[in-house]
Deep mutational scan, measured.
Amino acid sequence: DMPHRFKVHNYMSPTFCDHCGSLLWGLVKQGLKCEDCGMNVHHKCREKVANLCGI
């Protein structure tokens, strides 16, 4: 059981939050991507995600 390793990410195409399902808005640093499993989340959704990475 490992925690997610979220890192700020710049998305080049429209991407949706894997937690709430809404679009990650903006041009740069729109959200966070787990370096291990690739989960994408809003900055505000980070604390709502279970801290178990499903690598």
Results as ranks from 00 to 15, higher is better:
16 F>P: 10
10 N>I: 01
14 P>F: 07
20 C>A: 01
25 W>Q: 05
11 Y>M: 04
14 P>A: 08
27 L>V: 07
6 F>I: 12
28 V>R: 07
40 N>T: 11
20 C>Y: 00
28 V>Y: 11
40 N>S: 11
34 C>S: 00
25 W>Y: 04
13 S>I: 10
8 V>E: 08
50 A>F: 11
42 H>T: 04
6 F>N: 07
51 N>L: 13
8 V>R: 07
31 G>P: 01
11 Y>R: 02
31 G>Q: 01
4 H>C: 04
31 G>F: 01
55 I>N: 07
50 A>L: 08
47 E>N: 13
39 M>Q: 11
22 S>D: 05
23 L>T: 06
4 H>Y: 02
23 L>I: 12
6 F>Y: 06
52 L>T: 13
53 C>K: 13
5 R>L: 15
19 H>N: 09
2 M>D: 04
48 K>M: 09
25 W>A: 04
46 R>Y: 05
26 G>P: 02
10 N>W: 07
5 R>G: 15
10 N>C: 10
19 H>P: 14
46 R>T: 11
15 T>I: 10
32 L>V: 14
54 G>I: 13
22 S>V: 06
25 W>F: 09
46 R>K: 06
3 P>Q: 15
35 E>Y: 11
47 E>S: 07
9 H>L: 12
49 V>Y: 08
7 K>M: 06
50 A>E: 12
3 P>A: 15
7 K>A: 05
20 C>P: 00
30 Q>T: 01
55 I>S: 14
19 H>L: 06
10 N>L: 03
17 C>M: 00
26 G>K: 01
45 C>V: 00
51 N>H: 05
43 H>Y: 09
12 M>L: 09
32 L>N: 13
43 H>F: 07
53 C>T: 14
23 L>E: 03
33 K>L: 12
41 V>K: 05
4 H>N: 05
43 H>C: 09
15 T>F: 07
23 L>R: 02
35 E>W: 12
19 H>C: 11
31 G>A: 06
37 C>G: 00
1 D>R: 04
43 H>K: 10
15 T>Y: 07
21 G>L: 11
41 V>E: 02
1 D>M: 01
51 N>P: 05
42 H>I: 00
49 V>Q: 07
13 S>D: 03
24 L>W: 01
5 R>S: 15
48 K>G: 12
54 G>S: 09
4 H>Q: 04
35 E>I: 14
36 D>Y: 06
30 Q>M: 03
27 L>E: 03
40 N>Q: 05
11 Y>T: 04
22 S>Q: 15
28 V>D: 04
24 L>K: 03
18 D>I: 10
38 G>C: 14
28 V>Q: 07
47 E>G: 11
45 C>H: 11
42 H>W: 02
10 N>V: 03
38 G>N: 12
55 I>D: 11
23 L>W: 09
51 N>W: 02
42 H>C: 06
5 R>T: 07
11 Y>A: 04
12 M>V: 10
52 L>H: 10
29 K>G: 15
46 R>N: 07
36 D>S: 07
1 D>N: 13
3 P>D: 14
21 G>Q: 13
32 L>H: 14
3 P>R: 15
31 G>D: 02
55 I>P: 05
45 C>W: 01
10 N>R: 03
22 S>R: 13
21 G>N: 14
17 C>E: 00
39 M>Y: 12
49 V>E: 14
7 K>S: 14
9 H>I: 13
44 K>F: 06
39 M>L: 10
55 I>Q: 03
35 E>K: 09
44 K>Q: 07
38 G>D: 11
19 H>W: 15
51 N>G: 07
7 K>V: 08
22 S>K: 11
11 Y>V: 03
30 Q>P: 02
40 N>I: 09
8 V>G: 13
6 F>M: 07
26 G>W: 03
21 G>C: 15
51 N>I: 09
11 Y>C: 04
42 H>E: 04
37 C>V: 00
9 H>W: 08
34 C>E: 00
43 H>E: 07
27 L>W: 07
26 G>Q: 02
8 V>C: 04
29 K>N: 09
51 N>D: 02
24 L>Q: 12
6 F>P: 04
48 K>Q: 14
50 A>K: 13
34 C>G: 01
19 H>Q: 11
21 G>Y: 14
18 D>K: 12
37 C>S: 02
17 C>A: 00
33 K>A: 15
40 N>R: 10
17 C>Q: 00
37 C>M: 01
29 K>L: 08
41 V>T: 12
48 K>I: 11
2 M>H: 14
41 V>C: 13
34 C>Y: 00
12 M>Y: 10
46 R>E: 06
51 N>V: 04
2 M>G: 03
10 N>D: 06
15 T>R: 11
2 M>V: 03
44 K>P: 13
53 C>H: 15
45 C>I: 00
44 K>Y: 13
13 S>M: 14
11 Y>W: 15
22 S>I: 03
33 K>D: 11
18 D>T: 09
43 H>N: 08
3 P>E: 15
21 G>K: 14
17 C>L: 00
35 E>G: 13
52 L>S: 15
55 I>M: 05
37 C>A: 00
43 H>M: 08
32 L>Q: 06
30 Q>G: 02
32 L>T: 10
40 N>Y: 04
52 L>D: 11
48 K>N: 09
14 P>T: 06
9 H>G: 12
50 A>Y: 08
20 C>N: 01
11 Y>K: 02
8 V>S: 03
25 W>V: 07
54 G>E: 15
45 C>Y: 01
37 C>N: 01
23 L>A: 05
38 G>I: 06
41 V>I: 11
22 S>E: 06
31 G>Y: 01
24 L>E: 04
35 E>V: 12
7 K>H: 05
40 N>L: 02
9 H>D: 12
43 H>T: 06
2 M>F: 13
6 F>R: 02
46 R>I: 10
28 V>M: 15
32 L>P: 03
20 C>S: 01
